[in-house]
Design a binder for these strands. Structure first.
Lengths: 320, 320
DNA sequence: ACTTCACTGACAGCAGTTGTCAGTGAAGTT
DNA sequence: AACTTCACTGACAACTGCTGTCAGTGAAGT
C-alpha cells in the first residue's frame, strides 16, 4: 500500500494550495519521478481536477482546493494520539476539557474489535509525572489564549527577591513546558525586554484591551534554550570535567538537564564534560554533591577543592 | 487498481446502511470471497469502523454514527491533540512515525482559515525536555508491542551490580514513563516476581514464541507507584520534617518527586513533611544538600546532625 | 538557443495480490 | 446435539501490476 499512501499524500500536498513540480514531489516522497507521473495520471483518471503547467514556473496544482473525505485514523494512529494525550494530561496541560472531548471522540469511532485492541494498547501504557502546581491551570489557559490571539495581559509576578513587584503588562510570545515546569516567554513592558516567567509565580492575570504583534521569526523554543544554555561551541577557556564512578550513577548524571548539554564523551566508567569556568565552580558542585560516593571527580583538582569548601561550609551551616 | 476501486465500492455498498455478507459482496464484485475478507481487513486497519456479525443473519455493516456524521474535530480539539503530540514527541515516544502521520492528517483536514488559526496556536506552544537516551526507541517499540500482544520477550539486562546477569525471559505487563524516564513493569521468570526495569538498561530484546496473560486487575501505574512510594498513610512512627527558607527554593523542594508525596503543609516561609525514619536519614540528606544555604532544616535536630555527618564525609572524600 | 518541466513508451525485475484449499470458531436453527 | 450459516486465518503457487531506468518528445518561458 505504499502506492495508495503516496497518492493520498500527493493529494494533500496539492490540496494545501501550493504549486508543486513532479520533481519536488518525487524528492519529498522518495520515489522515482516516473512514478509521480503515473500517480498523477491515476488521480486524474479517478476524477481529481489536477492542473498541470509545463515550462518555467510550471508544476501541478489543484483546481478547487478542498477535498472532503471523512477523517480516518488507523488503529496505530488512534493509539498514538491517545498515548500522546496521556503525556499532555500528566504534564498538567491546561485545556484538559477539549482534550478529553477529542479523545473520547477518537475512542467512539471504532468497532468492537478495534476497541479491544485499543484498550489493550492503552492498558499497559502509563505516564506518571510529579503533580506540580495545580493552581497553575487557569493562568495557563489565559496565557495560551493571549499567546494565540496576541493580547497583552497584565500580571502580578512574585519574583525571586520576594518583594512583590508592581503589576506589569506583558506581551506573551509563547508558552513553554520545560522539564515539566511551565514558563511563558513574553515581552515585558516594565523592563522593555523579552524575558521568561515561571507560570506558577504569576499570582494574577487579567486581559488588557491592547494587542501586539509577535515578531514573525520569533521562536519561543530558541529563545528559551539560548537563555538557559548559552551556546558554548567555539568558546575558548573551556575546562574539561572528568567524572568516574558506577555506570548507573554516571548514566543518571549524563541526563541531568545542565550537564547533558555539555557532555563530550562517555565510556562505561567515565564521563567527560566541557564547561565554562564560572558554571563549573558555581553550579556543578551542587549537582555533584547528592551523588555522594557513587561518583568521583577525576579532573580538575580545583573542582575537588571547591567541593571540599562547599561541604565544609554546609557542615558549619548545619552544625549550629 | 481494481483493488482500490473494489474497496471503495464495498465502502459505498455498506454506507447505504445495508447489511451484507461476504458472499454477497464477492458475487456482486465478481471476486473471490477470500479477497473480500482481505479487503474488509484492510478497511478496518485504516480506521473504518466496520461491524461484523457471525452466524445466521450475520454479515457486515457500518457503525451507525459513521454514516450519519463523520469524525469531526473542533478547532480546539485539533489544537489540543496537536499540543499533546508535542508532549509525546519530546518524551521520546517510540511510535513517532504513526504519530507523525496522525498529526499531519489532523493538520490537513482544515480549510485555509482554520489552518492559520491553528498555526497561530501552535507557534507559541513549546515542550522541551532533556534529550534522554536515544538508543532506547527500538527497545521501547518492541516492548510496546509485547505488552499489547502479551508476548513474552527475552532480554539481557545490565543491573546495578555491573555484572552482566544472564538473559532472562520476562512477561511485560506495561510500559511506564515516569519523570521522563522509561520503565517496563514485567513478570520476571528469573526471579519469579513482578519487577520494574529501566528501559535504557535493556541491552538486547528478542521476541519469544511464548505468550502470557496479564492479570485482569493489574495496573502498571499502581504497581509502579506502590513500589516507588509505599503508602505512608496510617503508618506510625512518622517523623515530621520542617524546612524553612526562600519561597522559591521551597517551591522547588515541594515539587521534588519524593518529597512532594510527603508534603503535609506549606506556608510562605515553611514546608512541613511527614516521613518514615529510614528514608529521612538515608535519602533526604542528599535531597537537601544541593539547596545549600537557600533553605534550612528547622526540625528534627537529628537530621541536622546527619547532614553534618554527610557533609563531613564528603569533605573527606574529596580531600584526597 | 537554452532551460525547465510535463509526458510517453518499452522493459526487466520484483513485490504485492489473487484464488485455492483446508480448517477454526461463534451464533443461531432444527 | 447435530446442523447450518457465516466470519476469519494460514499457507502457497501463479500471476498481475508496479517500480525504476533509459531514451526521447513537446510546450512554455528566458
Amino acid at each position: 500500500m505504499p502506492k495508495n499512501d503516496n497518492m493520498l499524500t500527493i493529494l494533500w500536498m496539492l490540496n494545501s494550495g501550493e504549486k508543486l513540480t513532479a520533481k519536488q514531489i518525487s524528492e519529498k516522497l522518495e520515489i522515482n519521478i516516473r512514478t509521480v507521473y503515473r500517480y498523477i495520471d491515476a488521480l486524474c483518471a479517478s476524477g481529481v481536477p489536477i492542473i498541470s503547467d509545463t515550462g518555467h514556473n510550471g508544476g501541478y496544482s489543484l483546481l478547487h482546493n478542498f477535498i472532503k473525505s471523512p477523517l480516518l485514523f488507523s488503529i496505530d494512529e488512534k493509539k498514538t494520539l491517545l498515548h500522546a494525550a496521556l503525556f499532555a494530561k500528566e504534564a498538567g496541560y491546561p485545556l484538559s476539557e477539549a482534550l478529553e472531548n477529542a479523545t473520547s471522540k477518537l475512542k467512539m469511532y471504532s468497532n468492537q474489535e478495534q476497541e479491544s485492541i485499543l484498550s489493550h494498547h492503552l492498558a499497559g501504557f502509563e505516564v506518571i509525572n510529579r503533580r506540580g502546581y495545580p493552581a497553575v491551570q487557569p493562568v495557563l489557559q489565559e496565557l495560551e489564549h493571549a499567546v494565540a490571539n496576541e493580547w497583552s495581559v497584565e500580571i502580578s509576578y512574585r519574583n525571586s527577591h520576594e518583594e512583590q513587584s508592581p503589576n506589569r503588562v506583558i506581551d506573551p510570545y509563547g508558552v513553554v513546558n520545560w522539564n515539566n515546569k511551565w514558563y511563558t516567554i513574553a515581552f515585558c513592558h516594565l523592563r522593555n525586554e523579552i524575558r521568561s516567567f515561571r507560570v506558577e509565580r504569576i499570582l494574577n492575570i487579567t486581559r488588557t484591551p491592547f494587542s501586539f504583534r509577535r515578531p514573525n521569526d520569533f521562536s519561543a523554543r530558541t529563545f528559551f534554550m539560548k537563555n538557559l544554555l548559552p551556546d558554548v561551541v567555539g568558546k575558548s577557556g573551556l575546562i574539561s570535567l572528568i567524572i568516574g564512578g558506577r555506570a548507573e550513577a554516571l548514566d543518571d548524571l549524563c541526563i541531568h538537564w545542565f550537564l547533558e548539554h555539555h557532555l563530550q564523551e562517555r565510556t562505561s566508567t567515565q564521563a567527560i564534560f566541557l564547561l565554562e569556568e564560572e558554571s563549573l565552580y558555581t553550579h556543578v558542585p551542587y549537582i555533584i554533591l547528592p551523588y555522594g560516593k557513587s561518583i568521583q571527580v577525576i579532573e580538575p583538582q580545583n573542582l575537588k577543592n571547591k567541593l571540599v569548601a562547599v561541604a565544609s561550609e554546609l557542615m558549619e551551616y548545619y552544625q549550629v
